[in-house]
Design a binder for these strands. Structure first.
Length: 206
DNA sequence: ACCGTGATATGCT
DNA sequence: GCATATCACGGTC
């Protein structure tokens, strides 16, 4: 990095997750640990809301797991899923109103060696952060990073503004079985965009 | 296509 | 309490 890029602010992110999604496409998420620095340019995200969004972790109200989503915008919401994976979201909207943007995929733009070391199974550059758990993997994010303020200048994880994205594509969210008509997955052209997977339908008693 | 893996939430008792 | 169903997934078959 030759110059210091502008960090995204809490105010910019305190908007509807759909609008925050557009802001995050093309931005860079950067994590700093004792091992080094890794930067990932975000190319695919998904918007999640609160009580009106049946696919959201906040659909049924506040719990210990999702409480960060109810807090101020610009925080990192990290959750553990499927017994082995972490996924990371950027909290949007304002204090008390839950909303977040899931970071689904990105391109590693610096710290490639460390990224490859953290994900030895990646067989190409594009594969390094192709998928939400892979993205958290290259950045070295886990439970300990839940709630980190991404807008703070000296935070270990930060969001750096990018060129405004043009040609944003949309579609239904990946792995989600409800609200399939809602096109809240957003991506820009990149080989790192993950492949679509339909959510598994639950058997419902009506 | 299929399965590992464990936290989380919910619904019983 | 305890049982169990459900996952905002990735890797391997």
């Amino acid at each position: 990095m030759l110059d210091t890029p502008r960090q995204l602010t809490e105010q910019e992110l305190a908007v509807d997750p759909v609008d925050a999604s557009r802001l995050l496409l093309g931005a860079t998420i950067e994590s700093t640990t004792p091992e080094g620095v890794v930067g990932v340019r975000i190319v695919e995200v998904e918007a999640y809301r609160g009580g009106d969004d049946p696919a959201s972790h906040c659909y049924r109200g506040k719990t210990p797991r999702n409480e960060v989503m109810f807090g101020p915008a610009g925080r990192l919401y990290v959750y553990f899923v499927y017994g082995m994976h972490f996924c990371a979201n950027v909290v949007s909207l304002t204090d008390g109103v839950p909303g977040a943007v899931l970071l689904r995929a990105g391109e590693v733009v610096y710290g490639e060696d460390l990224a490859q070391m953290r994900r030895p199974s990646a067989r190409s550059h594009a594969e390094l952060a192709k998928g939400p758990a892979r993205l958290t993997g290259v950045l070295g994010l886990d439970r300990a990073h839940n709630g980190v303020d991404l807008t703070s200048a000296d935070a270990s994880v930060r969001l750096l503004a990018g060129e405004p994205a043009t040609e944003i594509r949309t579609g239904p969210r990946v792995g989600v079985a409800v609200a399939v008509d809602v096109p809240w997955r957003f991506w820009i052209d990149s080989p790192a965009v993950s492949t679509y997977r339909r959510g598994t339908r639950r058997t419902r008693v009506t």
